[in-house]
């Protein structure tokens, strides 16, 4: 009987120790945040703008900013117009700020997160909610809550426009015990 009690005690102590040593992922919470981008991206092979995404404005983000554990996924939704009379293959890039001013700068410095968005000539493509790729490359940037989105096309010349876009972030926060 004594042995039984001692074993139960040992098991209990081990369990409690494991709980505290393992960290708060044991009680992780996953949240989904939708961020609507009000501005449009106008992009040609000669000039373009980027749009700023500031998650820190959002209530869900503000409430959990100091408890962020992980970015599981970032998704994109939006429309892309092709103003040229030839099809365009659109690409989306993420960078820390809006300082990039040439296509080659974007291609060499920013992170390509969506590729192969084929927009027919003089037409509009609705991009359904899709997962951005290379999340590991932009995770730290997204964790900070502020980043810029660029849109270019692989063919030259190009003239595209992104509007009514939304970025969805799926992230983990630790639960406070």
């Amino acid at each position: 009987m004594k042995m039984k009690r001692r074993s139960w005690t040992l098991i209990s102590v081990a369990l409690v120790a494991a709980l505290f040593l393992s960290g708060c992922w044991l009680f992780g919470i996953t949240l989904v945040l939708s961020y609507d981008i009000d501005e449009r991206i106008y992009s040609t092979d000669e000039s373009f703008n980027s749009v700023a995404i500031d998650l820190t404005e959002e209530e869900d983000w503000k409430d959990n900013e100091d408890k962020l554990d992980e970015i599981y996924s970032v998704l994109f939704y939006g429309y892309i117009i092709n103003h040229e009379s030839t099809p365009a293959t659109g690409q989306l890039y993420v960078y820390k700020d809006g300082s990039l001013s040439t296509v080659s700068e974007v291609q060499s410095n920013a992170t390509l997160v969506l590729d192969g968005l084929v927009i027919p000539a003089d037409d509009t493509l609705e991009v359904p909610l899709v997962h951005m790729v290379r999340i590991d490359h932009i995770k730290d940037l997204v964790m900070e809550g502020r980043f810029h989105l660029y849109a270019i096309a692989t063919n030259v010349p190009f003239h595209i426009e992104v509007f009514d876009a939304t970025v969805v972030v799926i992230f983990a926060v630790e639960a406070i015990l």
Binding site: W25, F27, G28, I71, A172, E174
Partner: peptide, 11 residues
Amino acid sequence: HAIKVGDGGKV
């Protein structure tokens, strides 16, 4: 059942 995924947890 709690699982460590990246630095977060799925429970």
